[in-house]
Design a binder for these strands. Structure first.
Lengths: 163, 163
DNA sequence: GGAGTGATACTCGGATATCTGGTGTCCGAGTTTTCGCGG
DNA sequence: CCGCGAAAACTCGGACACCAGATATCCGAGTATCACTCC
């Protein structure tokens, strides 16, 4: 099992936007350069975040991406599901209905217990993700950040941020 | 994010072995035929389960696989990690240390908060998996199983099971 | 009849092809800006 | 000086190659079995 690298990128981008003054936007080029990643590929994920209603895209010159909701209203689960999709990680293929012990499909009224057990764990994972918001990430990032790093970021972002 | 199909197969195989009398073994061909899956590919996963100490492999004629521990001592997490590996799903690539705001690596003493948040959720997932054992799966499977299916399975397994 | 022994047949184990989904990239549609012109 | 308008430039959006990891498979090493032979 492996989460897409885009999840990490998306979380960092939303967290960065959350640290800026409300309503601030950055374009894809700035977000990519700030994190040192490929711009064209990052755009793919930003698009997904916009489609999910997490980011808002502003077209035209001086355009870019900004948070569509307040940072406290965006959970980590929102971001993860926007990029990874909402399908469960464990996908039951109902192999209990195959092989020599199988009977008619309509007999399997109860859900597969193995599927239920795996989904139960997945619900716990989602719950933990839902309890954390992008605002939490932003404040944590600031709390542990080095002063010089913050200053460098502030200066660099100065002429990139758009209101 | 997607879990390997082998996880489902491994769980069904361990659960089936747990339902048999203690010490019973089945060879790869029987396990594959019972679940209606490819034998050569299932062997790959059974091998992984054996290497992890969950199954025990008995070579030679009348050989096969059997549980290495009692069903109550094997958690779902054991099975999942044996097949998927123990690496976390979220892998922080430390992109905060890249880009124009980066400073010397030794300054980043604190772990990345985003990584910490994701790993926190992952711990909840693992905890839920650790709280369920293969014995639970076996009893649940029996509880919801149709009588005719159980009878068919019993008859079919009769001359395949090995002590 | 029993024990030893050799061949045998069956088992798992690791190394090897193939294929889907994530990774990475590109060019086109749309919109805001902005510059120039006329009033 | 101000308003209008058209061109332009920059933005995001969807469609197109590429590659790693999961999927699927095969043949060889090893061992318990079993039949046969000899005592």
């Amino acid at each position: 099992m492996k989460l897409s690298e885009g999840v990490e990128w998306g979380l960092h981008c939303t967290a960065l936007l959350a640290m800026l003054p409300p309503g601030s936007a950055l374009n894809g080029a700035a977000l990519a350069a700030y994190h040192g990643v490929s711009e064209s590929y990052l755009l793919k994920h930003l698009k997904a975040l916009a489609k999910a209603g997490i980011l808002e895209s502003l077209p035209g010159p001086k355009g870019g991406y900004r948070l569509a909701r307040r940072p406290g209203e965006v959970t980590l689960l929102d971001v993860v599901e926007a990029i990874e999709g909402k399908e469960p990680a464990f996908r039951c293929t109902e192999i209990r209905q195959r092989g020599p012990a199988a009977v008619e499909p309509e007999v399997y009224r109860h859900p597969c217990p193995i599927n239920a057990a795996m989904l139960k764990a997945e619900r716990e994972w989602k719950r933990a993700l839902r309890e954390q918001t992008v605002a939490d990430l932003a404040s944590s990032l600031i709390a542990v950040a080095n002063d010089r790093s913050v200053r460098k970021a502030t200066i660099w972002l100065e002429d990139k941020v758009r209101t």
